Simulated scan of single mutants.
Amino acid sequence: MKNLKSITLALVVFIATATASAQTKKIDATKSKIEWLAKKVTGQHNGVVSFKDGALVFKGQKLVGGSFTVDMTSLTATDLTGEYLGKLNGHLKSEDFFSTEKFPTSTLVFKKIGAKAKDVYTVTADLTIKGTTNPVTFDITVNGNAATTTFNVDRTKYDIKYGSKSFFESIGDKAINDEFELKVTLNF
């Protein structure tokens, strides 16, 4: 009888957990941030870009989804000031790079999530930049009401070829790396 009660209780807990509804946690776009780092042969630039909105989806304590919209018009460098900052920001927002007038937002939508370790998940997501969508894979760590990740994006997959040695072999020391790094902090 005692075993039957234990089995019944375990079955009830299992069913309750399995049928728990998903909970969407919207990010606080003002407290969440995206920091970018782009390297070139002769140095690097770094900066930020802001979220427009986004949310993570949980089933119980388990991460099961997420989607985000980034305000590309907020793209700015943080390593320069004055005239040089204006020139770099203008160039990054131009058609040579992110075409922010034509494509004011980018999106990231989680497609596949696997548990890697306690509170660490491996995510494959669709990243859309300049109207082009490609998969990206990264690890994300969830800690309370925050999540963090760092991953690289190959800009050439989104038709951002300016200064790429992959497309312009004779560019020499003016080459810009094809990949840039995104360091993301989500607060929800």
Rank of each mutant, 00 (worst) to 15 (best):
T148N: 14
L63I: 12
L11I: 15
D53T: 06
K118T: 15
T148E: 10
G82M: 12
N152R: 11
I129V: 14
V12G: 03
I34A: 08
Y162T: 04
A18E: 13
T122L: 09
D28K: 09
K111M: 03
T19F: 09
V70N: 02
F98E: 08
T81Y: 08
S21L: 13
T137A: 07
M1S: 14
E101G: 10
E95M: 08
E181Q: 13
T107L: 03
K62S: 14
M1K: 09
I15V: 05
S164Y: 04
S67H: 05
G60F: 03
T137R: 05
F58A: 14
N89I: 10
V64R: 01
A147D: 00
D126W: 01
T100F: 08
S164C: 05
N3E: 09
V142N: 02
D71F: 00
W36F: 11
M1W: 12
T76R: 01
G114K: 14
Q44N: 12
F14C: 12
V12M: 02
T156F: 00
K116A: 11
S32E: 07
K157H: 11
F167S: 13
S50C: 11
L37T: 15
K87G: 11
L56D: 03
G86D: 08
Y158P: 10
E179W: 07
A20F: 10
K87Q: 15
I27L: 11
V48W: 02
N177S: 13
A18N: 12
D139N: 12
F180Y: 01
E83K: 09
I113R: 00
T124I: 08
K39V: 06
K111L: 05
M1P: 13
N187I: 14
V57E: 10
V120F: 04
G114W: 05
G60L: 02
K31P: 13
V120L: 09
K40D: 00
A147Q: 01
A29Q: 12
L182Y: 09
I140Q: 03
R155C: 09
V41T: 15
T76C: 07
